[in-house]
Design a protein around this nucleic acid. Structure first.
Lengths: 182, 182
DNA sequence: CATCCAACATGATAGCGATCATGTCATTCG
DNA sequence: CGAATGACATGATCGCTATCATGTTGGATG
């Protein structure tokens, strides 16, 4: 059981019929090449979108956390371009792709909400990108602060470190240095 | 004059009336706090979305290149959350926000195309993010190849290096090493 | 053909952060 | 209340990449 209850909005799919399904660690939501018939959203746990390569190597394309939709772009594709696998036990909400598209085309409000959601996601990703393009911990922390305003409460620094792609130790040191400066 | 003609699709705005405007280096498309009345797309040059901070520091939120829409998320906001400034001379296509939204709500095809575009952008950004989260040049190049398949033609390696957040020299070395291995 | 320029290529050095180690502190739990 | 746990904190070492330097190559140009 996860102590922190995640706040996952319920009306994301505009009241469309949906079912929930539980996946064991290592379970597949879909495989590369499968025809796209459903749209998935993570309710609990984590789903990774991965692409395997010949040499056994693989890359992660998305880490979908609670509330995230898995592979939004697949909505407009005939088949999947990668695999979706659960690293840990996960609960996933599933809606029909056809039902979704029909609703999208007949309910402008819903279409607008969906587009706004995507646009916000793009925005967040772009910021994340720019932060990760910076070289030093100092620059990355500074950039993060420029957008978010203040340091999060203690207890969330580890997550912040992971988010800006830095080891917790490096982040502690940087915070310590800035404290010393002021 | 830029030698490489950029292929910028014309129907992105679904045939809506638009005007083109030229901005000098350092010119502002809009400022933080301005009411959102237009939607911008870069035709030539580069537009940066930036956020200034008290200490004179600033972060770049987006580098819009030819073909890119500037601040898609602003469509659904009342006012801008950051500044848009041209680093070099730029030509920008401008459409009315109201006209765009009206068209979006009355033409499902257009809405779907727009959503698909956003979804693809999210997909690309996520990949970019995962690549930048990797630590070594080797891993980053490997991840890039896993998605794109092959190395680009010579002459584009510098851009690849910039894209994966690595110095050109480091990329040359890594490519050289892989050549040696095979 | 001589010149020029950008990209490719590689060596040497130095800086920065990952990692490991060690310790403190606050909170939780038996 | 003592033990256990996870986050905060900081020191030491090492590896990787940025940077600077120095060539080399190939295509464009007059």
């Amino acid at each position: 059981m996860i102590a922190i209850m995640s706040f996952v909005e319920n009306d994301l799919f505009g009241g469309l019929a949906s079912q929930k399904r539980r996946f064991e660690p290592g379970g597949y939501l879909f495989h590369r090449g499968d025809p796209v018939q459903s749209l998935f959203r993570v309710v609990e746990g984590e789903v990774q979108l991965v692409r395997h390569q010949e040499a056994g190597a693989m890359i992660v394309l998305q880490r979908a956390m609670p509330g995230d939709v898995v592979a939004e772009a697949s909505l407009f594709a005939a088949s999947y371009h990668c695999d979706a696998v659960t690293r840990i036990e996960a609960i996933v909400e599933i809606v029909s792709r056809d039902a979704f598209l029909t609703h999208f085309r007949h309910a402008p409000d819903f279409a607008e909400t969906w587009a706004a959601r995507l646009a916000r996601e793009v925005q967040v990703m772009r910021l994340q990108n720019e932060i990760l393009s910076l070289k030093t911990v100092r620059e990355r922390l500074q950039a993060w602060l420029a957008w978010h305003g203040d340091l999060p409460a203690k207890g969330e620094w580890v997550q912040l470190a992971r988010q800006i792609g830095v080891s917790p130790e490096a982040l502690y040191r940087e915070i310590g240095k800035q404290r010393a400066r002021s």
